[in-house]
Structures are given as C-alpha cells and as structure tokens.
Design a protein around this nucleic acid. Structure first.
Lengths: 196, 196
DNA sequence: ACCTGAACACCGTTCAAGT
DNA sequence: ACCTGAACACCGTTCAAGT
C-alpha cells in the first residue's frame, strides 16, 4: 500500500508520486530533516501542493517509510513465531537497529512520534512497536530480560544507539559494540535469575 | 572563571552579563535550541550584540555551562582519586547522566560538539571527556569493562540515555533503569573474565 | 570599541487567486 | 478538485551606520 486507495485526479496523482520519489532521494541524501521547500522545488510543485498531499513532515516520512515499515513488520512476525524468546529478541534488536540506520534523522523522528496518535509516522510505526512489545514481554516472562524494564525502555535504547552513532565514521561497528552492551545488560543479574 | 579576564568597556560588560543571565533562563525554560533572537530581545540588545559576544550558539552554551563543567570536573577528579575502578566509573556515569539532565537539548549539543576543536562547547567539555577516558580506561584495565569498548562508546551511550529520556514524564526513573542496563552490559561476559 | 537594527537568505505554513 | 506562488511569521547571520 504505497499509495492511497481513493481515486485521484491524474495530475494530482502524478504530483503525489513525484513528491514521494523526490522526498525519498532528498531524505537519503540529507536526512529526515531536509527542507520541505527544497523537496517541493525539486519536484517542480509549489509548497502548497506538497502540503496538500502531506500536511506535515511526519506524514511525508510515513509515506516514504511505508515499504520500510512493512518489511520490518514482516520480519518481526517471523521472529514472533520463533520459539526461542531470547534469541528472537536479540535478532529483532539487531534488525531494528539496522533499519533505523537507513536514513539519518530517522531514529529521532520515530522517537518523537512514538505514542502520538495524531502522528502519521507514529501510526506507521505501530506494528514495529507492537512487535517489540511482544518480543520483550515474552523474553521477560522467560526470565531473559530484567523484570523492571518496559518494552518501551528497550526500544528507546535501540533508537538511542541509532541516534548517537549516525554521524560516526565507523557507524556500523560502533553500533554493534553498543548493541552488544545493551543485549548483555538486558539479562537479569545472576542472583535474581531464580527469582522468577 | 565565569567571565573573561580581558578588560571590557562598562556597557559591553553589562550587555555580556545580561545576555548570559537571560540565556541561562531561556535555556532552562526552552532548552538548548532556544531562539538566539529571542535571547537578544529579552536582554534588550540587538542580535548583532549577541553575536559580538558569542559568535555562535556553541559559544553561548559554553559560557552558560562554565560552572556546570567546572563542578563536573571537580567531582570527576575525586572519582579519579577513588581506588575502586568499577565503583568510581559507575558513580561517574550516574553523575554525568544527572548533569546532562540539567537542560533539555544539552546532551545533543555536547554530543555534536565532542571532538570538534573549533567548538567552544567541545572545548568546555574536554575535562569531562578526559575524566571519562581515565575512568573507563582504568576500569577496562582492571577487567570490569569489556575490552572492545572505547571510552567514547561509553560516554556516547550515557549521552544517548539522556537524549531519549529528556521528554519522558518519568524521566529520572526511566534514565535510572537504562543506566542500570548500561552499567551491567559494560562488564565483560563471564567466559572472558579470566582472559585478562 | 562597541552597539544598533536593517537586510539577507533561508525556514514552515497558509491562503487567495487561478485553472 | 487541485495547483500556484505570493505572503506571513519566523529563523540565524552579517554589516553599514551610528555613538
């Protein structure tokens, strides 16, 4: 569902598609905070046309990320079906961190929109958050995640790692080191292992 | 050293002090990304006067944070003198995280300025980074921090926790939970404990 | 030596006028 | 129904003119 199902005038549809393609390129090149004016200019439409199709930056991001979110949801479903709670969660966090590295500024945008029902981006990322909740809750029940942690805590920390590594020259390696720390730290301390 | 030692014309000094006081209030209220124009207006000076005293936002932040950085350096020195490597590092990370929560946007600003020699803020935070490096290196040598981690990794992760918690309603509690995860994850895995 | 504030090049956003 | 682009209220930053 890359495009809306509702019929659209031919020129409007062309503008919509062009804006989406241009936005994807612009965000790839300059990050999620790229100038909306710039996108409109590059798509050869007035700023008003961009706003007609995408009432705010979040809506545009949500549209650009539709396939991105769908792919993450699909892979998340597979992990939810995986019988190993600890392994599935670890793989999910790796997957999530990798996906968050797709565009600069992405982790910050998603973090800011999380839980905001008004935000199109928050809505687009709901399946992702649901997957995380399922996997964290299951791992906590299985005793491989500290009891005091919420799923939101864990997701937020992965977003944090994406945030603080996105401008590093050795981005991927640094992110891996930090995710290893996070994953190790999630485990309950040894003396509490039998408490559940 | 809240003010420069170089002599200054009386009216210039008044403007400097007023800008600093207004900036501190404005940053307390609206975060580190508050409008510089707004600060100039509230201090009853033209924007040019603000720029004359503080050539950019980083310079203003560095001036506002002078006492902040000094206090952190002082407490860091005490911890460097502490004979317990693991305990001193843990207390330092708690201290740092608490200090980063003083102003919204502070962690992001410091993170962006870290290692930039042109940045006044980067310069102001150098003692803080040095303290962290000393404490992390010592703990790593003592075998209580994973060998692959750099001091920058650890500091960055603390900044990340400050970043992702700064807008939460239960900011302090969430930050504590996350720091516990980080501190636990820093430890080398059990099977590598004897490797050093 | 320092201050002032107009001016510039940008933003995001809105909206009256067009087709 | 949709597009256009001028207009508005903001930015950060610079600089010629004042004192």
């Amino acid at each position: 569902m890359t495009t809306a199902a509702r019929p659209m005038r031919a020129d409007a549809r062309r503008n919509y598609e062009r804006l989406l393609a241009v936005a994807r390129d612009a965000i790839t090149e300059h990050g999620a905070e790229v100038s909306l004016d710039d996108i409109a200019r590059r798509a050869h439409v007035g700023p008003g046309t961009l706003y007609r199709h995408f009432p705010n930056r979040d809506a545009l991001l949500a549209a650009v990320l539709a396939d991105w979110a769908e792919e993450l949801r699909r892979q998340g479903d597979e992990l939810v079906a995986d019988p190993d709670p600890a392994g599935a969660l670890d793989r999910w966090l790796h997957l999530l961190l990798g996906h968050l590295g797709t565009y600069r500024g992405l982790a910050a945008a998603i973090l800011a929109s999380a839980g905001d029902d008004e935000s199109a981006l928050g809505h687009a990322c709901q399946p992702m958050h649901d997957t995380g909740r399922t996997l964290v809750d299951r791992a906590r029940t299985a005793g491989t995640v500290r009891s005091e942690l919420t799923a939101a805590d864990v997701h937020r920390m992965v977003h944090g790692i994406a945030l603080i590594t996105e401008n590093l020259p050795d981005r991927a390696a640094a992110a891996d080191r930090m995710l290893t720390v996070l994953v190790a730290g999630l485990r309950p301390p040894p003396d509490a292992a039998a408490g559940h």
